[in-house]
Design a protein around this nucleic acid. Structure first.
Length: 234
DNA sequence: ATGGCCCCCTGCGCGC
DNA sequence: TGCGCGCAGGGGGCCA
C-alpha cells in the first residue's frame, strides 16, 4: 500500500543506485502493466543513463539523461527494487530493466494493479493524470491548503484522497491525519472550522514526515541486516 | 463539483 | 479433509 511516504522512501533508496547507471535492456513480461508501445519507448530509453529517481504524488519517476521518464505506480502490491545479477526473479516480475553493471531494476506486481509507463523526452507533461496532480502536501503552506479546500462541499476524506486537490495521500494516511486532528472522515469540508483545518494540515505533515523518517531507518536496517551492498527494497 | 459504481487481480478465508 | 466460491483491498476512471 505505498502512499507518499513509501514511494518517497523507494525513490530515495533507488536514486543513488540508479543515477549514472546505463540501461542496456527493457523487457516487458506483461503488456498489461505497461500501457503504450514498449518498442517505441525502447528507442529513447535503452542506451541512456539514469539522471535520478524522484517521487511525485504516488508515482516513482526515473529521469533519464535525455529527458525521457519512466513512471511507476505501485498501487497495492507493486514492488520496485534493484536485483543482483544472479538473483532469481520473483514469481510476479512484470518489467525488467537491465543495467550496465549486470544488475537489473525489477518491477514486480502480484495483482497487476500497478503500472509502468515510459515517456519520450517532454512527453510526460502531456499525460493527463500527471498534469492534473495537485500540490505536494509537504511543499505547500497552510494557507495554500486552506485555499485548496475553500468552497468545497465534499467530504473531507474524499478531498484528501483526491489527487487533484492534494497529491500523494491515500486511505491510511488520510484516516490517520483526520483522527489526529479530531475530524470525522465524512465531515463536509466547508463546515469544518478553520482552526480544525489548520490542525489537519499540521497532522498531515506530521504523519507523512514521521512515516518517511521511519521508512528511511527501515531501509538502513534492511541493508545492514542483509549485508547486500547496493540492493534495495522497501 | 460530487458521489456512486466498477474495474484492475489474486490470495485467502469461509462454508459446506 | 478438501474444494470451490466470493470477497477484500488502494486507487483511478467513468458516468450521472
Amino acid at each position: 500500500m505505498p502512499e507518499l511516504p513509501e514511494v518517497e522512501t523507494i525513490a530515495r533508496g533507488l536514486d543513488p543506485l540508479l543515477a549514472g547507471r546505463r540501461v542496456i535492456s527493457l523487457t516487458v513480461l506483461d503488456r498489461r502493466v505497461f500501457p503504450g508501445d514498449p518498442e517505441a519507448f525502447r528507442r529513447v530509453f535503452v542506451g541512456r543513463a539514469f539522471a535520478g529517481v524522484r517521487r511525485r504524488a504516488k508515482l516513482c519517476l526515473a529521469d533519464m539523461d535525455n529527458g525521457a521518464v519512466i513512471a511507476f505506480h505501485l498501487k497495492m502490491t507493486g514492488r520496485l527494487y534493484v536485483a543482483r545479477p544472479a538473483a532469481e526473479p520473483r514469481a510476479h516480475l512484470r518489467v525488467l530493466i537491465g543495467l550496465d553493471d549486470g544488475r537489473a531494476l525489477h518491477f514486480d506486481d502480484m495483482r497487476r494493479f500497478g503500472s509502468c509507463r515510459g515517456f519520450a523526452p517532454g512527453a510526460i507533461e502531456a499525460w493527463d493524470f500527471f498534469r492534473k496532480l495537485g500540490p505536494e502536501p509537504l511543499e505547500m503552506a497552510c494557507g495554500q491548503f486552506l485555499d485548496a479546500l475553500a468552497g468545497r462541499g465534499g467530504r473531507i476524506k474524499a478531498l484528501l484522497l483526491n489527487q487533484e486537490v492534494l497529491a500523494g495521500i491515500g486511505n491510511i494516511y488520510a484516516d490517520e491525519a483526520l483522527f489526529m486532528a479530531g475530524i470525522r472522515p465524512d465531515a463536509k469540508a466547508d463546515r469544518i472550522p478553520r482552526a480544525r483545518l489548520e490542525a489537519l494540515f499540521r497532522a498531515i505533515r506530521e504523519v507523512l514526515c514521521r512515516a518517511i523518517d521511519a521508512g528511511g531507518s527501515t531501509i538502513r536496517d534492511y541493508r545492514t541486516a542483509e549485508g547486500v551492498e547496493g540492493s534495495f527494497q522497501w
